[in-house]
Design a protein around this nucleic acid. Structure first.
Length: 670
DNA sequence: ATTCACCCTG
DNA sequence: CAGGGTGAAT
């Protein structure tokens, strides 16, 4: 599914068997997400179930928890080991894990670690979880900074190795990162790194708040149910907070520069929970099932709200630039500020690693030029190749045209989690590589995009037209959605990278509604009429008479194929009527004539001029007659025994082309 | 190696 | 009408 899940599968490979494992599995993921990813890739229900159980355990076994501490280090090193293994032997498992759905943890066995005794395994996981909770109640700052560094470096290794491996295996991953922001760049500028750290801290804080609230609530209930209120060495103050509605007892040592976030988080997430908690106090012990459900529900809310806050926070930090900066984001801003939200994938990392020494503006244009040059020299193939992943972020600016202002990326509301449909919609509108924050401020030089950079979208449109052209007649294009929209689709990437996305797009009427470029049914009709004049049009003729078509190899081939098909039908009819005449006893070639009344002409006219709204030139009748006579002669003299007997006829006919009237040059002649 | 035309098929 | 296969021409 995504990196997080895949790694999750890798690093927790022994999650087979027990139902509990499924929930417990979430916690390592949860913890890791504090550092590098938002919590989006697991189900709330699982987490809540786990937390409900875990809180009890924590309470009872809290003082044991130090016993498990070493396991945390084991866990960390295990990740690193996995990452190394990843490059070699794990590849098969890797792909298996990738193909596995999030809910298929139970079936992803076949790992060496699965042989580990289950009790050990469970203990280890439990230890990790408990350590998290303990650390949350204790001094997150001290613990987190130490572990953060260690884990981050381990995770970094693992992730990079994993990515390296993954890049080789498959490039299209955009749809897999919708909800998973790219991992922080570790090699970027120190400024961006600080920014990353800051954001991670904020995420961590949110998570901590959530866990704390969870503990509060559950311990309240637990105390209510239990006979005594055990001294809660780590969260003692929380009881009061919960009952009084104040969280003053919680002071997160972690340094933060944004108190308002916490405040608003309380307002949004905390208070409703607490109101609910008040009700929970009335819940009887026998109704613990209902209580659990209620808790789950509330926790779902709290988690989602927390995620909202994190996203909102990140979004707002991304906008904390001067207006000028905002309007003209440098590439890394595009990546960091936008791609993370768009969840496209971790490519932004490359933008940091590339030519970090250069002035950004220079890098920006240089990369653009590089891409354009490549686009120029690269042969255009039917299957548009995806540019190397490492260059995607630098490509981004080149592909785009200026977009209408109402498409401003900042219109995108990041305070709410992005849903797949939103992502898809954005991808369809702006293209998968469009940073959500790029376009309204493209440099002027980008506006008048070089022919090469425009070529790619056209290529794809042409290809799309092959698929959708037959539908276009039934879906007249809204006039308001012109080439800009089509261009914005940036289909080459969609087509080549995301099979899934592409298929989704094909099912989306949005696509067929807005593609009016390339070869349309009208072009086909026009080509058919042109066939009355020329059976063998040169590519120059085609280009001359289809001025509204952006020609590339694909389009040209398609047009040539059209005329090939026309000829095919034409010659088939000729042969058929010639043979029929022979069968009918015609002996003289001169008896073979073609008039507007003849069956042959009606057949041809029906094929090329179905609407019969075009006056077929007389010359075509002559050519048709000549062709028919050629066939008649050939068949009469038994030349058709030669496998290539038709070629002589073709040779004659191809010389009979006449000029196409200039009226056909107008794209509006139809 | 590429392009094109033809042929066949669906 | 498009796609795939084939062979000739370049």
């Amino acid at each position: 599914m995504n990196l997080s899940l895949s790694e999750q599968n890798m690093h927790n490979p022994s999650d087979g068997g027990l139902e509990d494992d499924k929930a417990e599995l979430m916690i390592p993921c949860f913890r890791r997400n504090m550092f590098d990813e938002p919590i989006t890739s697991y189900s709330n229900g699982s987490i809540i179930s786990h937390l409900l159980r875990k809180t009890i355990h924590t309470k009872r076994a809290l003082d044991e928890s130090h016993f498990y501490l070493p396991n945390l280090a084991v866990s960390s090193s295990t990740m690193a080991d996995s990452s190394q293994e990843d490059q070699s032997s794990i590849s098969s498992r890797d792909s298996a894990a990738e193909s596995a759905s999030p809910g298929s943890h139970l079936s992803t066995g076949a790992s060496p670690e699965e042989d580990r005794p289950l009790s050990d395994h469970l203990q280890a996981k439990r230890a990790r979880v408990e350590n998290i909770i303990r650390g949350m109640s204790g001094s997150p700052n001290s613990r987190l900074h130490g572990e953060n560094e260690r884990a981050e470096s381990d995770v970094r290794e693992a992730r990079e190795a994993y990515r390296e491996n993954k890049r080789k295996q498959r490039l299209p991953q955009h749809q897999e990162h919708h909800l998973t922001p790219p991992a922080p760049s570790n090699r970027g500028s120190s400024g961006s790194k600080d920014e990353e750290c800051h954001k991670l801290k904020e995420q961590l804080q949110s998570m901590q708040r959530l866990l704390r609230q969870l503990q509060e609530k559950f311990l309240q209930v637990y105390n209510q149910e239990g006979t005594e209120c055990e001294g809660r060495d780590d969260t003692g103050a929380e009881n009061e907070d919960a009952t009084t509605g104040k969280e003053s007892g919680f002071v997160f040592p972690m340094s933060t520069d944004d108190e308002s976030e916490r405040t608003s988080d309380r307002a949004k997430g905390g208070l409703p929970d607490r109101a609910k908690t008040g009700n929970l106090f009335l819940t009887h012990q026998k109704e613990s099932g209902n209580l659990q459900d209620t808790l789950k529900h509330e926790l779902c809310k709290a988690v989602s709200e927390s995620v909202d806050m994190v996203f909102k926070k990140i979004s707002s930090t991304g906008l904390k630039q001067s207006p000028a900066q905002r309007m003209c984001p440098r590439p890394e801003h595009i990546s960091v500020g936008a791609d993370r939200k768009s969840q496209e994938d971790g490519n932004q990392e490359q933008s940091h690693t590339e030519e970090t020494g250069k002035p950004r503006a220079l890098e920006y244009y240089e990369s653009t030029e590089t891409r354009s040059a490549e686009g120029q020299t690269e042969a255009l193939s039917l299957v548009v190749r995806k540019p190397p992943l490492s260059q995607l972020s630098s490509v981004t600016p080149t592909v785009k045209r200026p977009y209408p202002l109402h498409h401003s990326p900042f219109q995108f509301n990041y305070s709410t989690p992005l849903h797949d449909s939103q992502i898809l919609e954005h991808l369809l509108k702006y293209g998968p590589h469009t940073s959500f924050g790029t376009l309204p401020c493209m440099p002027p030089s980008m506006d008048r995009a070089s022919p090469d950079s425009v070529e790619r979208p056209w290529d794809a449109i042409a290809m799309r037209s092959k698929v959708t052209s037959s539908h276009l007649a039934h879906h007249p294009c809204p006039s308001g959605l012109g080439p800009v929209t089509v261009d914005s689709l940036c289909l080459p990437h969609v087509k080549m990278e995301c099979g899934d996305l592409q298929s989704m797009a094909e099912r989306n009427s949005y696509m067929s509604l807005n593609i009016q470029e390339g070869l349309t049914p009208n072009h086909l009709k026009k080509a058919k009429l042109m066939f009355f004049y020329t059976r063998y049009p040169s590519s120059n003729v085609l280009k001359t008479f289809f001025p509204d078509v952006k020609f590339n190899r694909c389009i040209t081939s398609q047009l040539i194929k059209w005329f090939s098909n026309f000829r095919e039908f034409y010659y088939i009819q000729m042969e058929k009527f010639a043979r029929q005449a022979i069968v009918d006893g015609v002996n003289n070639v001169k008896d073979m004539s073609v008039s507007r009344d003849s069956e042959l002409f009606r057949a041809l006219n029906m094929h090329y001029n179905k609407a019969n709204d075009f006056q077929v030139p007389e010359r075509f009748l002559e050519v048709a007659e000549i062709t028919l006579q050629e066939f008649f002669n050939a068949i009469s003299t038994a030349k058709d025994s030669d496998p290539s007997w038709k070629k002589a006829i073709y040779k004659v006919i191809c010389k009979l082309d006449s000029d196409v009237p200039d009226e056909f040059k107008s794209s509006t002649c139809l």
